[in-house]
């Protein structure tokens, strides 16, 4: 064998040995796939059953009359009625539009502020701790002021959503940029990465995992601010989830009230599932978790 072939085989042999062996995967039949799906689903179903049972138990204990605290047997049919009515979907639509617009505005503000703070030392010293401080503030305290500024309007709600969510987003971005590994920065410098390319090819992608964490937290704050806002700032009787909640309270309609609480919970979970999925697929790509 010629010399180069011998070398080639040595290198390739070593590579093959050093690579993680493929974990043995059994071929899976339809039955096993079904069992897998079941294994992933039953704990969630069990959780729902436990919650419903506990709820029903409290109702049966007679702690409050069924008029103010109805059991699942009365709430679930109401929930089903709501979900199948067109007014419900307009309410969800209005609320989700506000949520997404508000979140998008908060994203824009958060990114600009986050970039500015990570770039300019004096700015960081000046407002770095202010951003952290804002994150700890319950956003509901801004509403009286927002209503004074903007009146009873959607702008008031947007104002509070931005104040609630932008600090987390800015914070996620700044810490993402701060914690870019120095060895990557050095490698980038050696390769001549500078200016805009330094950001597009290195800093931004490197900061992405922490930024996504910031987004997730920002969303949670935006959602809370929005719910508070819709309860406090009722614009011309416009249908929305918050409005439906306060209507139900005024009419002493406990079934509807609880139905909407369940809906708010479900929407929150769905968005959270989305962010967790984004986070996980990012980490898998990076090889942070296997």
């Amino acid at each position: 064998m010629p010399e180069t072939d011998v070398r080639d085989r040595q290198v390739q042999g070593l590579d093959a040995l050093e690579l993680q062996p493929q974990r043995g995967v059994d071929e899976r039949g339809a039955g096993e796939i079904a069992r897998g799906v079941w294994a992933a689903t039953w704990p969630k179903l069990a959780a729902v059953v436990i919650v419903l049972a506990a709820w029903q138990a409290v109702v049966w204990s007679g702690w409050r009359t069924e008029f103010v605290f109805p059991g699942p047997d009365r709430v679930l049919p109401t929930l089903f009625n709501e979900v199948t009515s067109p007014e419900f979907w307009t309410a969800v639509q209005v609320t989700m539009r506000r949520a997404f617009v508000g979140f998008a505005l908060a994203l824009a503000v958060g990114v600009v502020v986050g970039l500015a703070v990570s770039q300019f030392k004096p700015l960081r010293t000046a407002i770095g701790s202010l951003i952290t401080g804002l994150q700890t503030m319950p956003s509901i305290v801004w509403f009286p002021f927002a209503m004074l500024l903007y009146g009873i309007s959607e702008s008031a709600i947007m104002f509070v959503i931005i104040l609630g969510a932008a600090p987390s987003i800015a914070g996620g971005l700044t810490s993402g940029i701060d914690y870019v590994s120095p060895s990557l920065l050095r490698a980038g410098k050696v390769m001549g990465l500078r200016g805009v390319q330094r950001y597009t090819l290195l800093v931004i992608p490197a900061a992405l995992p922490m930024f996504v964490t910031g987004l997730k937290q920002g969303w949670a704050f935006a959602w809370r601010s929005l719910m508070a806002g819709e309860l406090l700032v009722i614009i011309n009787q416009q249908n929305s989830i918050g409005w439906a909640l306060s209507q139900a309270r005024q009419l002493n309609d406990a079934e509807r009230l609880l139905s909407y609480i369940i809906i708010v919970l479900v929407i929150g979970i769905m968005i959270d599932v989305f962010f967790s999925w984004a986070d996980r697929s990012l980490r898998r790509r990076w090889g942070i978790t296997q």
């Binding site: 590994s181 050095r186 490698a187 090819l201 992608p205 490197a206 790509r285």
Partner: peptide
């Protein structure tokens, strides 16, 4: 230049 760590971009 090359270093002790490969410093490849993980993404």
């Amino acid at each position: 230049m090359m270093f002790q760590e490969a410093a490849l971009f993980p993404w």
